[in-house]
Design a protein around this nucleic acid. Structure first.
Length: 810
RNA sequence: GCCGAAGUGGUGGAACUGGCAGACACGCGGGACUUAAAAUCCCGUUCUAGAGAUAGAGUGGGGGUUCAAGUCCCCCCUUCGGCACCA
């Protein structure tokens, strides 16, 4: 009888040893080993501590890197803290303590939790985005962006969250609500910092071809950027000298245009006011006033009942020379195209709805399926797909694609418009009116205007304050700290004010993976020698909530750093995957208010780190959501206990033989290895269970048991370490080499394969490994049962797949 | 509406490049041990018929390719995630 499994007795002992010996320190610039950079999203250290989801994701990544190290790779597996941001600040306001203190406490708690799981992070590279020595370089990047005209100030309406009292990016507004707090977002005009990410739009799309993200991730990036080719066609406004560009993405339907719509806030309306007939003008004015009261978000939010006002004016389409009425209508947005749009009711449902309401003609110019040219009289009949163009002059008979090309050429030849690439992506609103973020390193000088701080003045530290209540007037709390705000202009020495806004919390996470390569560097954000060695990140593991924005922003910054020569690679991540979430026992997202939260600390206390980890991996595949089930963890606990006892017993009764199990062990190594490298941990765990069920009473050699302990290390590191020591071994097992798979020992000498007749399994036959088809055939045909079933029918075909199956077609 | 992912027992899920569907686990049923319970161990567990050997059906639905389809092709349905009056 061996020792009983009591993880509480040994897990912390091994953790102390691993971390004090720095067993998992990544070796810089090691030449004779292949490097592997495994990145996991660094956590936001929130008050309640680690979520069970963190436990799962980090455990999985930990298993992979532990195995890769054993396979001889030089692994970089770092961790840090994404600690700026609203939650800490809001919490600080509530408990009336500085965010610095609270953040530090949270980090300490988090670190303790991660260590108690035995995760093999390289703790020597840990940092927080709130460390001045880190954000010095975040600020430095900002200065470089400014220097390269990629950061500018704009006075523009922004999304203002009245609860958080800050502006937020379009990306952070979901359904008209701030995604962090859920309150309704208002429009407010403020002078804001904006980053010119649109300049990188093409490269952010095109370079996706050079990485292997999941298809869904690539699609999301592309959709978000939303690149489209637009055709802005000149329209002459009748009775004026005005020529306006009217936008469409479907120039192939131009001959079906029956009206033009302009967004109500479009400046051209003001210009044209006095040209409008009296009655129309009054109506348009009324309409414009009414839509001004609604924000853009409200407008999109409302029912889709079309509204609008006729201007009484007409314009001439310079492609078709037709005369079209001009309407103002709020279903057109200023941000789309030129803000003026062609209405083609036969081939666009919105245009159809508008045309029906205002009794405008509907002209069909694209054939439906099977050459259908019937009139369109109903919304359901509106044909938006591609097809053959007809009734369209020079485009007749062309397909949509050909017609677009032809129209583009026509426009450019005749000089009656232009072909423009536009993006859904807008420039990145980069300032926040809050305290707990990186200060933006510029001053506003009465004489010189905006003046960036000189590099040697970085970091510009966030002053510690006592009052950080945000204000309603769009000023950040920093505005109240007069002796910080009032400063001298670095250029002229005159009086100047510091920028009072701070950076959004996306900033710190946009380059952290570079800092891990060289975390203690004080002269540059990371030395090129080291980023050249470690980058690209080989695998970036993270959640579904960060695949649009964070990915986009960090790729943008990295491309910029590439352009200015800081890094040598235009893309930061080679591979990006998405984990599933851990849901509560009721199948819903874990949340305090639902009372379905599972606390990792209590699991570790009750079951130990290994059982917790193995269970989280066994629950289901990496990429899928998993529902918590307390009963199943008991099952895993049972297995781990049995395994612990089994290894000790097998060691004590080991023999020199072990021939019976040699193939099984080789198969197990193979399955575990593939399971872990492919992130299919549930199958790796199942392989261990299956092995135990089939072989726990067989005889093993000492060497075989050593192999079994070794391969269990990635998923149960503490238990493996303890068994290694209980079986009299010295040194940490995590330094062991991963066993080589003996390919010749993957198949038993004698195997049983199924025999099918006409595709149905009718029997089984034993064959020796490596038998030729002829011998197999002879044996099958001589089998009594098969003979009987074949009923002396003649064989049409005999199929033998080596070592797998026999199929006889009669 | 568009884009993406996925539909397999009572449940979570296996099935490597087309080759025995349901591994492994939970649950459930039966048994052993026990005065009893818990724990542990053993047996069974896709459905239908049958005492049984066995036979038939079966991976969301319908077609197709193939000796052979959960896996490949076409059409449809459902669920989840993202985007959306983007012309």
């Amino acid at each position: 009888m061996g020792k009983q499994y009591k993880p509480q007795d040994f897990e912390s002992k091994w953790q102390e040893q691993w971390f004090s010996n720095m067993d998992y320190k990544a070796q810089d610039l090691l030449k004779d080993k292949e490097k592997f950079y495994q990145l996991v999203e660094f956590p936001y250290p929130s008050g309640p501590g680690m979520h069970i989801g963190h436990t799962r994701n980090y455990s999985m990544a930990d298993s992979v890197v532990r195995m890769r190290r054993m396979m001889g790779q030089n692994v970089l597996f770092p961790i840090g803290w994404d600690a700026f941001g609203l939650p800490a600040e809001n919490y600080a306001l509530k408990v009336k303590r500085p965010p610095q203190e609270i953040t530090e406490e949270n980090i300490n708690n988090f670190r303790k939790q991660l260590k108690s799981l035995g995760l093999s992070f390289d703790w020597d590279r840990e940092f927080s985005t709130t460390d001045p020595l880190y954000y010095k370089w975040t600020q430095w990047i900002f200065l470089k962006l400014y220097e390269n005209d990629l950061a500018y100030m704009a006075d523009k309406p922004i999304n203002w969250c009245p609860k958080c009292k800050t502006g937020c990016a379009n990306e952070e507004v979901v359904d008209g609500k701030h995604e962090r707090c859920g309150s309704k977002v208002e429009q407010k005009k403020l002078k804001q910092w904006v980053l010119k990410i649109t300049k990188y739009a093409d490269r952010l799309i095109d370079d996706l071809d050079t990485v292997d993200y999941l298809d869904s991730v690539k699609a999301l990036q592309k959709n978000w950027i939303g690149r489209k080719i637009w055709y802005d066609i000149d329209y002459k406004i009748e009775g004026t000298d005005e020529v306006v560009g009217v936008s469409t993405t479907r120039p192939d339907t131009q001959f079906g245009a029956t009206f033009v719509v302009v967004a109500p806030e479009h400046e051209i309306l003001q210009k044209l006011m006095d040209k409008m007939p009296e009655e129309n003008r009054r109506e348009v004015l009324k309409y414009v006033e009414k839509s001004k009261e609604k924000s853009e978000i409200e407008r999109l939010d409302e029912t889709r009942e079309k509204s609008g006002a006729f201007t009484g004016l007409y314009c001439i389409n310079s492609i078709t020379n037709t005369r079209l009425p001009i309407y103002a209508a709020d279903f057109v947005l200023t941000t789309v195209g030129t803000g003026m749009v062609v209405g083609v009711p036969a081939h666009d449902t919105r245009d159809f709805e508008f045309a029906t309401k205002f009794k405008l003609p509907i002209i069909r110019v694209i054939e439906g399926k099977n050459g259908d040219r019937s009139d369109i009289t109903n919304v359901d009949e509106v044909y938006e797909d591609d097809g053959i163009v007809y009734n369209s002059g020079f485009m007749d008979g062309l397909t949509t694609e050909e017609a677009k090309k032809k129209a583009g050429e026509y426009i450019e030849e005749k000089g009656i418009g232009e072909v423009v690439t536009r993006y859904h992506l807008q420039d990145w609103l980069f300032s926040r009116q809050r305290y707990w973020g990186e200060p933006i390193p510029v001053v506003h000088c009465e004489k010189c205007g905006i003046v960036p701080l000189p590099e040697e003045d970085l970091p510009l530290e966030l002053p510690v304050v006592t009052e950080y209540e945000p204000t309603d007037d769009g000023q950040s709390p920093l505005a109240n700290i007069k002796d910080w705000v009032n400063t001298k202009c670095p250029k002229c020495g005159g009086p100047a004010q510091r920028e009072k806004n701070t950076m959004p919390n996306w900033a710190g996470s946009s380059w952290y993976f570079l800092r891990y390569c060289d975390p203690h560097n004080n002269n540059e954000l990371a030395s090129k020698e080291l980023t050249d060695y470690w980058m690209r990140v080989d695998h970036y593991e993270g959640g579904p909530e960060h695949i649009t924005l964070h990915l986009l922003y960090s790729r943008f910054w990295h491309k910029f750093l590439y352009d200015i020569g800081v890094v040598s690679d235009p893309e930061p991540y080679q591979k990006r995957t998405i984990h599933g979430n851990v849901l509560g026992e009721d199948g819903r997202k874990m949340s305090k208010s639902l009372g379905n939260v599972i606390n990792p600390d209590s699991l570790i206390e009750k079951y130990g780190a290994d059982v917790t980890r193995v269970y989280l991996m066994f629950m289901g595949p990496y990429e899928g959501d998993v529902v918590w089930n307390t009963r199943t963890i008991e099952g895993v606990n049972r297995f781990v206990k049995k395994w612990f006892a089994f290894i000790q017993d097998a060691w004590n009764s080991s023999s020199d033989d072990g021939k019976d199990v040699e193939v099984a062990i080789n198969k197990l190594v193979d399955r575990v290895q593939r399971g872990i490298l492919d992130w299919k941990f549930n199958t790796a765990v199942a392989a261990f269970m299956e092995f135990y069920n089939n072989y726990n009473n067989k005889a093993f050699s000492k060497k075989q048991i050593e192999t079994l302990i070794t391969i269990s290390t990635p998923i149960m590191p503490h238990l493996a370490e303890e068994l290694w020591s209980l079986t009299g071994h010295k040194g940490s097992i995590t330094k062991n080499q991963w066993p080589e798979i003996n390919k010749d020992m993957l198949v038993e000498d004698v195997i049983t394969i199924p025999v099918q007749i006409n595709g149905k399994v009718r029997g089984r036959i034993e064959i020796e490994n490596g038998m030729s088809e002829d011998v197999v055939k002879e044996r099958v045909l001589n089998d009594e049962r098969i003979k009987e079933l074949m009923n002396s029918d003649s064989i049409k075909k005999f199929i033998y797949i080596d070592g797998k199956i026999v199929n006889i077609v009669l």
